[in-house]
């Protein structure tokens, strides 16, 4: 039977190292299977998150050979098995143990976003057409894997994550997607433009598109979410005529 050599990061914030594990390879095996094999036969205390094993829940994010990936979707036979496969935790968030990081920052950011506010409290079913929700549905596909947060250099290298002082904060691509989903919802009337400009710091994004490249849901994060949000901010803050028009007519 074919074998793979996995080098898996073991340790916590303070100390840690890559540990070698030899895994028998079955057809169609994914990295998460290999990690489970390690738990089952070598190291029962190896920490890892997972739930669905089908790329639906966004739990099993890690960096496989340096690439932010879902382990349940990354096949071993996509690699040259004569070389070791390196599995590390995602880097942008503080490490808890082994492959598990503290992603609670994301949940805190989410809380600061104004929730959906419907046009009407009418309890009848609404009339909303498919073509009006296609865009929003793309954003709502997000499985909160936070791979885009991991790869975005604004968070990864510049650490714009100060939620306490809310200074120089960047909410990150995941929450640009969420904001776009709310802003473009045909029945929503909340105004989040000042938030997007100030607290969420949309200006920090310089459209490198790295987030879009890693998104397992293939959401066009940059083109469909961030750029339109940037445009809305520009319209709101720098286009006085449009602004006045909006003040008279209501939203957009």
């Amino acid at each position: 039977m074919a074998e793979a050599l996995l080098k898996v990061y073991r340790g916590d914030e303070k100390t840690g190292k890559l540990v070698d594990y030899k895994i028998p390879v079955e057809a169609g095996m994914v990295v998460l299977d290999a990690v489970h094999y390690i738990q089952g036969y070598y190291s029962p205390d190896l920490a890892v998150r997972w739930n669905c094993k089908a790329a639906k829940c966004g739990s099993c994010s890690a960096e496989v050979n340096g690439k932010p990936s879902l382990m349940c979707k990354t096949r071993l036979d996509d690699f040259d098995l004569s070389q070791p496969i390196e599995v590390r935790p995602i880097k942008t968030f503080p490490l808890i143990k082994d492959l598990v990081t503290d992603v609670s920052w994301n949940y805190e950011v989410n809380k600061t976003i104004a929730p959906f506010k419907p046009k009407t409290e009418n309890t009848d079913e609404w009339k909303v057409y498919q073509e009006d929700v296609d865009r929003v549905q793309e954003f709502r596909k997000c499985i909160e894997c936070f791979l885009c947060q991991d790869v975005c250099h604004v968070l990864r290298n510049h650490d714009k994550k100060d939620l306490v002082n809310k200074k120089d904060l960047f909410a990150g691509p995941r929450f640009m997607v969420r904001l776009a989903g709310l802003e473009m919802h045909p029945m929503d009337v909340a105004n989040r433009i000042p938030y997007i400009k100030n607290e969420a710091g949309v200006g920090y994004c310089n459209i490198t598109k790295c987030c879009t490249e890693v998104c397992p849901e293939e959401i066009h994060i940059t083109d469909n979410a961030i750029i339109p949000l940037k445009e809305r901010v520009v319209d709101e803050y720098y286009d006085p005529i449009l602004k006045m028009w909006r003040a008279i007519t209501g939203k957009s």
Binding site: D12, S43, P44, D45, A47, D98
Partner: peptide
């Protein structure tokens, strides 16, 4: 095996 910290 191991400690109480995140130990599946």
């Amino acid at each position: 095996d191991g400690l109480r910290q995140y130990n599946p």
